[in-house]
């Protein structure tokens, strides 16, 4: 899949649905050629004064993250909309974010994009690393050795193209650690390469790294 993905515009496709629906969405997406996805758990709120008064305004949600080719967005949107009635209220939402770069099974070194917006302010990028559970410490360590100041670890589960086992006909999706790192654009290259080398992201099934552009930040510590 790496060879196909290379040099193509990519996006991060996010779906937020009620708990339990996520796996179905991923399955439907796979029909269109999506290779895998990662789930996070969250809580959603409902705007309904009666339910608020009763204290019943919290729902468990699943957030599904998928890295897809940008050209697939249109058809995936249509497919999911039809299958899960997403145009009706309370059936879930989707959105997509352009990805600056993806490092998965990629033999080439990561090279920063040339600056597009001129050299006005300090630019930041968000580096998202998804690895097997328990490896987040290694990711943060590798990032720090390359100049990152820190990272945030989220716990989730994921399903790639070939690593789901079935038990009583229910798919078992392995647990994942998702590491979010905000870095200055100049440092991104070094950090991504450091993580990639330390965790052998090049090898199949070892994880995914992708980089998303960030517009504004607050609260980042700068030396």
């Amino acid at each position: 899949m790496s060879m196909i993905l290379e040099n193509k515009a990519l996006s991060l496709y996010c779906v937020i649905v009620n708990f339990g629906e996520g796996s179905k969405v991923l399955k439907a997406s796979k029909e269109l050629g999506v290779t895998g996805g990662t789930f996070l758990l969250g809580k959603g709120t409902i705007k309904n004064s009666i339910l608020n008064m009763l204290g019943l305004d919290e729902v468990r949600k699943e957030i599904l993250l998928m890295v897809i080719e940008e050209s697939l967005e249109e058809s995936l949107n249509e497919h999911l909309r039809k299958r899960f009635n997403l145009d009706k209220p309370n059936h879930g939402i989707t959105f997509s974010i352009p990805i600056t770069h993806l490092a998965i099974l990629n033999r080439h070194e990561y090279i920063s994009k040339p600056k597009m917006r001129g050299a006005d302010d300090m630019k930041y990028e968000a580096i998202v690393t998804i690895v097997d559970k328990g490896l987040s410490d290694d990711v943060v360590e590798a990032a720090q050795s390359a100049g990152s100041t820190g990272g945030t670890v989220i716990h989730g589960r994921g399903a790639g193209s070939n690593d789901t086992a079935k038990l009583f006909n229910i798919e078992i999706e392995p647990e994942k650690d998702i590491v979010l790192i905000l870095s200055e654009s100049e440092k991104t290259e070094a950090i991504v390469n450091s993580i990639k080398d330390k965790l052998n992201i090049d090898e199949p099934g070892k994880g995914v790294i992708f980089v998303v552009d960030v517009n504004r930040t607050l609260g980042l510590y700068r030396e």
Partner: peptide, 16 residues
Amino acid sequence: VEDVTSGHIPRKIILF
């Protein structure tokens, strides 16, 4: 179980 494992161990399997 579902919350702690982010859904890795599904409810249905435990129930079964």
